[in-house]
Design a binder for these strands. Structure first.
Length: 423
RNA sequence: GGUGAGGUGGGUGAGUGGCUGAAACCACCAGUUUGCUAAACUGACGUACGGGUAACCGUACCGGGGGUUCGAAUCCCCCCCUCACCGCCA
């Protein structure tokens, strides 16, 4: 969530920037500022009353020691009075605070100035592209048919065991999954990221920390008996490592990578978007996470983009990078770049990575801070990105790699798959 | 699942009603000494909110919530978590 400070000190600017996300913040921010004024006044009054009561309590102790009973009794009566008066102030203060927080929670992050205006996917800006364009014949098959032809991914079997969206990978299909995970983790490690193996199930506090709760509760699988959530991405457990932590500036940027299975209910999805590997309830992903100073976070973001680009390049896939417009930007993000690869047989772009800077938005809820050289504590910036999500990469590898001999694997991957063709 | 022990600052750990926002030790930071390093010595050293240009002052916080009391880390109640042993299982 946004900090109270930015709202009270840069009110007009905040309202202006929120408009780019198509969020009209004028009223709610006015309310917050009013509530904050009342909150401050109440606290000042309450603190004074409590200070007086504390003083009296000390005096009573002294008077008792000296045997001045009647004076002590008089002081006691006075503290009782004060206590009565603080009751209401205490309640008011709590109310003001929760009212303010409730409002802060529904205000999205401020978009960075670089974020283009726009309503939806069509307004996203292509900032860079590359990779070899495949030349497939008219008889090129979509990946779900290739999966069947080579018997490497069985969607029906997944339906039998679990349900739609839980495919079963077999033979070279399964080996390709394992190879990609290994390939991504090795690359991340060589780029300086510390490998983490996190829990795949998290508690409520972690869900709130990264912002999946309360708003996206319906998107996560929930274990009722233990009140735990299956993670939708490794971002959740990895970022929560730094919840309630004060880092030293010298430790930044923190660079972590983690593989995990990811679980998403994807409530409300339908149609061709969910065909084959395009959208699953369980999938594999390697994530990169950074915690950084505000001064350096945009350098970090660029390094993350450059890094992800090396992955799609090594996989010999045609790619482009989109800078998401205000309307397409997620609630918590200040700026997001999506990597898409071209799926030649489906003739459409598939999102395989989303790299974002959340600035202090996530850190504020996480209470992830750092100590500057001059000993001040400040909120960190948090960033994350997929590097990469497997299913759509597999879809693109299958479709773009199809040839007479089967499906050709990119050179960089062969040391991991130990085979050159799926045939 | 059963039984027991325990949750105090970055760490270890003292503290059973006022002198405690919290001893001591360790770590970290600054300085002195030193040819360098080490050692030794000196000092500083929690977080949040509120007030103030600032120095600084006030309030709250000893797992969380409630209660008793003029006054609670300390007493009472509820909850959460961790550890140990046993059982069960991988």
């Amino acid at each position: 969530m946004l900090t109270l400070k930015v709202i009270t000190e840069e009110t007009d600017d905040v309202i202006r920037r929120l408009a780019k996300k198509h969020f009209d913040g004028k009223q709610i921010i006015g309310e917050i500022i009013e509530l904050d004024k009342k909150r401050r006044a109440t606290q000042a009054e309450l603190d004074n009353a409590k200070a007086e009561a504390n003083n009296l309590a000390k005096q009573i102790g002294q008077l008792m020691k000296e045997g001045k009973k009647s004076e002590a009794e008089a002081a006691k009566a006075k503290t009782a009075e004060i206590k009565e008066s603080t009751k209401k102030m205490d309640e008011d203060l709590k109310n003001f605070e929760t009212e303010i927080t409730n409002r802060l929670l529904v205000i999205p992050n401020l978009p960075n100035e670089l974020v283009p205006e726009g309503n939806g996917a069509d307004d996203n800006l292509v900032v860079k592209e590359g990779g070899p364009k495949p030349n497939l014949g008219p008889d090129a098959l979509p990946h779900w048919e290739l999966a069947k032809k080579y018997d490497i991914i069985d969607f029906d079997l997944g339906v039998k065991i679990t349900g739609a969206g839980f495919p079963v990978y077999k033979g070279k299909g399964a080996r390709l999954q394992r190879a990609l995970i290994d390939f991504f983790l090795d690359n991340a490690r060589e780029a300086g990221y510390l490998e983490i193996e996190p829990p795949y199930v998290v508690n409520q506090a972690s869900g709130y920390g990264t912002g999946q709760l309360p708003d996206k509760e319906g998107q996560m699988y929930h274990c009722n008996v233990d009140d735990l959530y299956l993670i939708p991405t490794a971002e959740v457990p990895v970022t929560n490592i730094y919840r309630d932590v004060i880092l030293n500036e010298s430790e930044l940027p923190v660079m972590n990578t983690a593989y995990s299975a990811c679980f998403r209910r994807e409530a409300g999805s339908y149609g061709k978007d969910v065909r084959g590997l395009n959208r699953l309830h369980q999938f594999d992903k390697v994530e990169i996470v950074r915690i950084d100073t505000p001064e350096h976070s945009y350098t970090s973001l660029q390094e993350m983009l450059d890094y992800v680009q090396t992955l799609v390049d090594k996989l010999e896939l045609p790619w482009h990078i989109l800078r998401l417009c205000g309307g397409d930007l997620s609630f918590t993000s200040a700026i997001t770049y999506d990597f898409e690869v071209f799926s030649a047989a489906q003739k459409r772009w598939l999102e395989v990575s989303s790299v974002s800077n959340f600035e202090t938005y996530q850190a504020n809820r996480l209470k992830c801070r750092y100590r500057t050289a001059d000993k001040k504590t400040q909120l960190c910036h948090t960033l994350n990105g997929s590097a990469l999500a497997l299913p759509r990469i597999v879809a693109a590898l299958l479709e773009n790699g199809q040839c007479e001999k089967g499906i050709r694997m990119p050179k960089a991957l062969v040391p991991y798959t130990h085979f050159e063709y799926i045939d």
